[in-house]
Nucleic acid binder design. Structure first.
Lengths: 184, 184
DNA sequence: ACCTGAACACCGTTCAAGT
DNA sequence: ACCTGAACACCGTTCAAGT
């Protein structure tokens, strides 16, 4: 009552994510974000440079929210957990997740995930010179699957089928990494 | 001069694709499409139900433009050509291509591509009951890679590196299919 | 049948003004 | 420092009217 609410970058991103989750990407307008925060759209510009930056920030929020598996686990189990975590994130935030393939992870915060994958690959015996390539292929396959699944490209298939797909995907990746590790 | 130009669905989709290629997805407005056709924006509604349908149509145009490899070739070469063709399409139409992962191929025209993949998998000895799964995994990996590449997720890597990535990806897929074919 | 004019509700963004 | 009011240029979409 009366007092203008205090907002910051984090609350803007969180509000945007909530709106996209609840009402879809089309409903994500600066007006809607402002409404949720009890503020006018113009107030957002002090905390986020514009709508494109809002989307970028939301994607990064998705990445940095992921939990990392304990380093004591064997490499293949670490990769499995990372992949399963990515898939779970996609299901929680389907609308925003589909933007993820289109924006490189640049900030140091967002680099934690690929760095974890890299470490697991080296632990698997993949030659360091090749680890970066396999990180790209692995994350692309997992992200591509997760995006396809939540964006409806696999519409008409049961979730049991898709679980089987995901398992087969992980199996293929593990086999390929083991072969690469043995050859190094 | 004077005579109102005749337009149809096909010319609307083509104009939209050209604008997206030349000036990006943000510049793809109904006004811009109408301008290119020498018509007012309202005229487009007779040929396309709205902007969302325009985007859908453009994505489908991408799919149906792909050329199919001759059936005489060995299955692995057919898959290789299909994958390379997809990658080339992505490079020709990067902006629209990134929408592809988000819309299932439903029309019979657009189903030709997955059907070709399916046929090649069966030729490779993959049990028909499993062919559909491998078609999904294969197309997801290839599409995911192509989208990542043209959308800038691999920014900072040389095209030689990415060519190597793509080769490694195809190698991994072929190995996995051969294993699946031998077990069937 | 096909295109246009006029109008509507809504966008993102700016900038000077308020507190 | 942070938010608002007012204004701008532009969206997509509708519907009755023209030819």
């Amino acid at each position: 009552m009366g007092r203008p609410p205090r907002i910051d970058r984090s609350s803007v991103l969180t509000a945007g994510l909530a709106i996209a989750d609840e009402r879809g990407l089309d409903a994500l307008t600066l007006q809607a974000v402002a409404d949720r925060l009890g503020v006018t759209p113009m107030a957002l510009y002090r905390h986020v440079p514009g709508k494109a930056a809002l989307l970028d920030g939301m994607v990064e929020l998705l990445l940095t929210n992921a939990s990392l598996p304990p380093a004591e686990l064997p490499w293949h189990e670490r990769l499995e957990r990372l992949a399963t975590g990515v898939r779970a994130t996609a299901r929680r935030h389907p609308e925003v997740f589909s933007l993820l393939l289109q924006r490189p992870a640049t900030t140091t915060e967002a680099r934690r995930l690929p760095d974890q994958v890299l470490a697991a690959l080296v632990a698997a015996g993949v030659p360091p010179a090749r680890a970066s390539r396999w990180e790209r292929l692995l994350s692309t396959a997992v992200l591509g699957f997760a995006v396809s699944e939540v964006a409806g490209r696999f519409a008409g298939h049961t979730s049991a089928e898709l679980d089987g797909d995901f398992e087969a995907l992980l199996g293929m990746l593990r086999t390929a990494i083991e072969a690469e590790g043995a050859s190094g």
